[in-house]
Amino acid sequence: MFKILRDLLRYNIEFTIGFILTLAIFLFALAHFWAPMPDTAIYLLPPDMPPSAEYWFGTTSRGQDVLWQMSSAIWNTMLFGLSVTILSRLFAVAVGMISGYLGGKWDEFLMTINDTMIALPNIPILLLVYFVMRDQMSWPVLALTAALLGWNYDARLIRSVTLSLRNREFTRHAVFAGMSVPQILVRQHLPYVMPVIFFTAMNNLIWAIGLEVTLSVLGFSDINRPTIGGMIYWANQHQAIIAGIWWWIAFPIIAVVLLFLGLFLLAISVNEYIDPRSRLSRMGA
């Protein structure tokens, strides 16, 4: 693991930039655990202060420090985004690979579910869940719901990769070597599916964070818990843009853009590294 990291840092400039950006933002987000004030407290500080030596990123109209709000917000948003991504990747891989490999009735059954889910509109479903859950609505529940909505297209993609792998001679060979279905899927096919997983993970993360922001801006989430969307919601409520409190919105957005950039660079460089063709070249094929 350490050797892979070292190789990537040494030989891949995209990875290095991505790694530094992501690490910096991660450390910044981690810092909220040592924040001088609780992140839900309001009117502790003088409101609407522009960036200065005392308040680096200024304060909000609600008397909060933008710096520490951002730190918490990025943490919470990322926690949500990554949970959705990881959960939905698990669904996509399981459904895509099983459907592609087993084929027949399994394929029909799983793809019917998959295509039905694709046809469902996301936002209304999430709103429905919100109204049903009301007070029990917490971020893990929201993450699970989003994950259930976010795997369908990628499952189809993974299915098509597995479908082509199923017809390769090495798969038939594996069957005659007595390998079981899980062995074939994990040992033989997963290395080829990995690049698809990484590639779609990035898109999915962006989609999940976008969804969180959308719901928060509309006010359909726990608005007291700081998130990127939540910050925009409150800034909007206080008409920050009209009032000229630009730092309330500008800094969170810059942070998110940098984070996306960092993650994107990480994803493409790791993808290049784990791609079967590049792996084979490094092994000397």
Binding site: L8, Y11, N12, Y273, S278
Partner: peptide
């Protein structure tokens, strides 16, 4: 002439 992550071939 190839160069993949420091593996020159």
């Amino acid at each position: 002439q190839m160069n993949y992550f420091g593996v020159r071939r």
